[in-house]
Design a protein around this nucleic acid. Structure first.
Length: 676
DNA sequence: ATACATACC
DNA sequence: TACTGGTATGTAT
């Protein structure tokens, strides 16, 4: 039975926003006081209102959970032999040696700045002007942390220091952070050339191979010097070892060698001692190489545990999780410590009386029954320290977790750009912003040589309500240029506005953020030499997609050189391709792409935006205006519109505009297809 | 395939 | 006065 949900209890900021909750280095501070200040300063803001609405939804979800719990019978919430069996299985698949290492730089951005500005070391300071990116420990004492808006940080420091201190703001300098990050990674790669880093300030290493070579090396030394006493573990020598030699071996290692047996041959204790030494040395190297940046490290049999451990002795410390005592490490942890359990899941669990991992384990039957399968399983795996092995599926035999099987070929799933601005309801301006974003995104995609099959537009209103609408293109159609992006994105934006007006019956569409996301990506192949499609010109010149106010389009400029529908996406991604010859594939693709863009893009004239939002609403498709009061009429019209009357008109228009002399057949086929 | 929510840095 | 940006993934439909 859960405690009060949204009852009379005083509202707490930390329950509403992550930037108010505790973080490493925030010990011994007055959370109540901090909460109070945050709520007072921003409690009525639109942002906070939105957080409350979200929180209400979470509470609703919790109530549903509790309803189900009340109806539950012991058969539902008791564990079962099958579950016990699975849990046991996870545990026995756990690696027996702790070679996973997570290196986490201490307050990275801030630390980078402090190199330059040592005078800020002991006064409250943060990086970031509007939004705080990170803060030093002096500031954390007052509850100032990342993701917190700057002015709240100011208030916290001012008030909690009784006006004696002020929060110093340093503008972010990502070039510097990137440069420092490169230095760090360079050093770390000597210890594991296959390391992964998911952000500028942390890296995931498997020190298994390094350790194996290290131990081998030492073994040889010991042999040549002393005769080892029987039954006695050889001590880890206190002399320094030949690091550069090991680094070299690793550099030339093709990753196919098996090191596991070496580590299994030595005791857990020996392994630990060696690892602690290596990691200590490694952290030292980082500090030297960066001119004084410190980091913390966690060592564990899997990366999630290592990640948690890296936080334990922050800053400038390290923590080892003994594979034989994982449960002792895990059980006392608050559920929130587990990567993947955030503010919301924590709240849900807490409502079920689960606050620690011990609770989670004790309630495993209930959890398994209550949560959706993937979530439930990953929670339960976590409860016994088995984490990170993605998607909660059953692990196929063996502790592949940390061996040299680094899959290099992971391809980025999506790419996006979004921008926040002062709330704006001018349709022309919004569309122009959308085009700017498309431009940025297109550049990113070109740089990364990727093409997208799906485009999503994201809108955040003044109220902080978020909408997203997406469109997947026809089979085999992939796009990149900003014209294409705009051709798809602009109508989606129109659609969002239309639906917002319909649903909320709200005439203003005041927007504070626009974003475009591309997904279902494929890699661009070598430049295609097929004759230039007319699409580029079409998208560029056609009044259907070129705003009259189009100073933002440097028209002829970049539109020429490149074909838009460049590549045949990698063979194998879509087997059906195999049925088409290369050439017909190309034209097929272009034809479909053209159709796609025409179908969607041309329907939305980005020109002729009404200057003011009045008592009229527009058809999201053809932009024709209708009296706001006549909802039925509009809906009727939209249906007609969607049924294609306008499509035909649009296509007739394009016929005159873009003539394709080289391949007139295509045009026929295009129109045939469109008219269907 | 689409929309939305959650999470992480 | 004022609350980010980029990516991945899970859930529900």
């Amino acid at each position: 039975v859960a405690p009060h949900i949204g009852g009379a209890a005083a509202e707490s900021a930390s329950a509403l926003i992550t930037s108010a909750s505790a973080k490493a280095g925030m010990d011994g501070m007055d959370r109540t006081r901090i909460d109070e200040i945050i709520l007072r300063e921003s409690g009525t803001s639109k942002f906070m209102q939105q957080q409350r609405r979200r929180d209400a939804k979470v509470n609703q979800k919790i109530e549903e959970f509790q309803k189900r719990m009340k109806q539950a019978t012991p058969t539902d919430y008791n564990t079962t032999p099958a579950l016990e069996q699975r849990i046991h299985q996870w545990q026995s698949n756990q690696a027996t040696r702790a070679t996973c290492v997570v290196v986490d730089m201490d307050m990275f951005y801030m630390a980078c700045e402090l190199l330059d500005k040592p005078h800020l070391k002991n006064v409250p300071a943060c990086v970031g002007q509007g939004m705080i990116l990170t803060s030093n420990y002096a500031a954390r004492k007052f509850g100032v942390r990342s993701a917190m808006p700057g002015w709240i940080g100011d208030k916290l420091v001012e008030e909690l220091s009784n006006g004696r201190q002020r929060l110093a703001h340093v503008a972010s300098n990502f070039d510097l952070y990137k440069q420092k990050s490169v230095q760090v990674v360079q050093v770390l790669k000597e210890f594991d050339p296959h390391l992964k880093s998911y952000s500028l300030d942390e890296a995931y290493l498997d020190l298994g191979p390094y350790l194996a070579i290290f131990l081998k090396q030492r073994e040889r030394e010991e042999h040549s010097f002393t005769s080892t006493h029987v039954g006695e573990e050889p001590k880890v020598s206190t002399s320094s070892w030949d690091h550069s030699r090991i680094a070299e071996v690793l550099r030339n290692d093709d990753g196919s060698r098996e090191y596991d047996h070496v580590l299994r041959a030595v005791s857990n204790h020996t392994c630990r001692q060696a690892l602690e030494r290596v990691v200590h040395y490694m952290r030292n190297c980082v500090e030297q190489a960066t001119g004084g940046l410190t980091c913390s490290a966690g060592m564990a049999p899997n990366f999630a545990l290592a990640k948690i451990a890296s936080d334990k002795n922050k800053p400038d410390g390290q923590c080892f999780v003994d594979p034989n005592h994982v449960l002792e490490f895990v059980r006392p942890l608050a559920v929130r410590k587990i990567p993947g359990i955030g503010r919301v899941t924590e709240k849900i669990l807490n409502a079920c009386q689960i606050t620690t991992m011990q609770d989670l384990y004790d309630q495993r039957g209930l959890v398994h029954w209550l949560f959706p399968p993937t979530t439930g399983v990953s929670l339960l795996k976590a409860s016994v320290g088995c984490m990170g092995s993605s998607s909660g599926g059953e692990d196929i035999e063996g502790e592949t977790q940390s061996s040299n099987s680094t899959k290099e070929t992971e391809f980025q799933k999506g790419i996006s750009r979004e921008r926040t601005f002062s709330p704006n309801n001018c349709w022309t301006a919004l569309n122009s912003k959308l085009e700017d974003i498309a431009q940025l995104l297109s550049e990113d995609m070109a740089r990364k040589k990727m093409l997208a099959h799906t485009v999503t537009v994201k809108v955040k209103l003044d109220s902080f309500d978020v909408y997203s609408r997406s469109k997947s293109l026809g089979r085999g159609v992939y796009i990149q240029s900003r014209y294409e992006l705009v051709a798809i994105a602009a109508p989606l934006l129109t659609q969002i506005r239309g639906e917002h007006h319909r649903v909320k019956e709200n005439l203003t569409f005041s927007c504070r953020l626009l974003g475009i996301r591309c997904s279902n990506l494929v890699e661009e192949e070598e430049f295609s030499n097929t004759p230039q499609e007319t699409l580029d010109k079409f998208l560029c010149k056609s009044p259907l997609s070129t705003p009259k106010t189009a100073s933002s389009y440097p028209i002829a400029a970049s539109a020429s050189g490149k074909s838009i529908f460049k590549s045949v996406p990698g063979t194998g991604t879509r087997p059906l391709d195999a049925y088409l010859s290369n050439e017909s594939r190309q034209s097929e693709r272009s034809r479909k792409a053209f159709a796609e863009i025409t179908k969607v893009g041309s329907l939305d004239s980005t020109f002729d935006y009404p200057k003011e939002e009045s008592q009229f609403v527009e058809c999201p498709i053809c932009q024709r205006k209708f009296p706001a009061s006549e909802n039925a009429v509009l809906n009727q019209h939209i249906d007609t519109c969607l049924n294609g009357s306008t499509v035909r008109q649009a296509v007739r228009d394009t016929k005159d505009i873009s003539t394709d002399e080289e391949q007139p057949k295509k045009r026929h086929r295009l129109t045939d297809w469109l008219f269907k």
